[in-house]
């Protein structure tokens, strides 16, 4: 399966949400779509999932336009939207059966898959409760199960870890890693730690444009020499620099920042993480393109 974004542009009135986005996704694995809020990730996901048509450009699935033929992609897609869709009156099992029937999935195979997903996502003990009585995290797990119905070849998740506790997040990462062995998983998120350990490739977006396309390791090596740490007294005024982390250590705080020079006296160069690298790329300190 090969998905090609060919100069995809989306505008809403005067606002340009996505501008000339070009990329090719063709191998199984987890692809992280990263960017700050408002970078255009959700718009790109909505175009890929055939919810909206791009204003310009095209998205091709194995050479055929899914803008013109959306059903081609819909048969292969498992989608986890940002806003969890659910009917509060139904139980998890009834809801999953409802969706499976709506998608026209074969009954016997679906029954088996639903039971497996309920177990895999730790929903089997609570499946008899109505979704209205579920916590946000539980509903998120039901939505994940819904997105995996019918063994889709392409899984697109928009902010999949919202509302999940740390254990659930780790378990979700494992699940997506397993799925990505034979499928393409596109995870859109602004929480870089969610994809740091699982993504084979990252697409970094800023103001609607693709500003990095490559392996996480490439991003990290590109950011070498741009990440610094300095210990400063609490409350000390700092220059206007992109700070990636602040850690409080007894009477002072350790500030981690990205810059091409050690702009604070006493700053020491440190090894970048993917989060540092992303910040450096988004701030324009690293001019690289995959």
């Amino acid at each position: 399966m090969e998905i090609v974004f060919d100069h995809v542009t989306m505008t809403f009135g005067d606002d340009v949400a996505v501008k000339h986005f070009t990329a090719t996704l063709n191998a199984a694995g987890v692809v992280g779509l990263i960017g700050p809020n408002g970078a255009g990730k959700s718009t790109l996901v909505r175009m890929l999932t055939t919810q909206i048509k791009p204003t310009e450009g095209d998205i091709l699935l194995d050479g055929t336009s899914i803008v013109k033929h959306p059903d081609l992609l819909r048969t292969k897609l498992g989608y986890l939207p940002q806003q969890i869709p659910y009917y509060p009156e139904l139980t998890a099992r009834a809801y999953l059966h409802y969706l499976a029937a709506a998608k026209g999935l074969p009954r016997v195979a679906t029954d088996e898959q639903i039971e497996r997903l309920l177990g895999q996502l730790h929903l089997d003990a609570i499946h008899g409760r109505r979704l209205a009585n579920y916590s946000g995290g539980m509903r998120q797990r039901v939505a994940i199960a819904a997105s995996l119905l019918g063994e889709p070849q392409l899984i697109v998740c928009d902010e999949p870890t919202v509302g999940l506790d740390p254990i659930e997040r780790a378990s979700l990462r494992t699940l997506y890693s397993q799925l990505a062995q034979t499928r393409l998983v596109l995870m859109s998120t602004h929480i870089i730690s969610d994809i740091e350990s699982v993504a084979n490739r990252i697409l970094l977006m800023r103001q609607g444009r693709l500003c990095f396309d490559g392996k996480p390791a490439d991003a990290i090596s590109a950011a070498q020499g741009c990440v610094w740490e300095v210990a400063a007294p609490i409350g000390k005024a700092l220059p206007d620099i992109p700070i990636s982390a602040v850690k409080q250590v007894s009477a002072h705080e350790v500030i981690r920042f990205v810059a091409d020079q050690p702009v604070i006296a006493g700053a020491e160069q440190v090894t970048p993480t993917l989060e540092d690298a992303s910040l450096a790329i988004l701030e324009g300190l690293v001019m690289t393109h995959g």
Binding site: T49, T50, Q51, R74, P85, L99, A102
Partner: peptide, 21 residues
């Protein structure tokens, strides 16, 4: 309610039979 709950938009990302739905 199907629209507002997000279920209909969700179903529209898969190949759903409109007649059945």
């Amino acid at each position: 309610t199907a629209r507002e709950s997000g279920v209909l938009p969700f179903l529209q990302t898969s190949r759903v039979s409109r007649v059945r739905l």
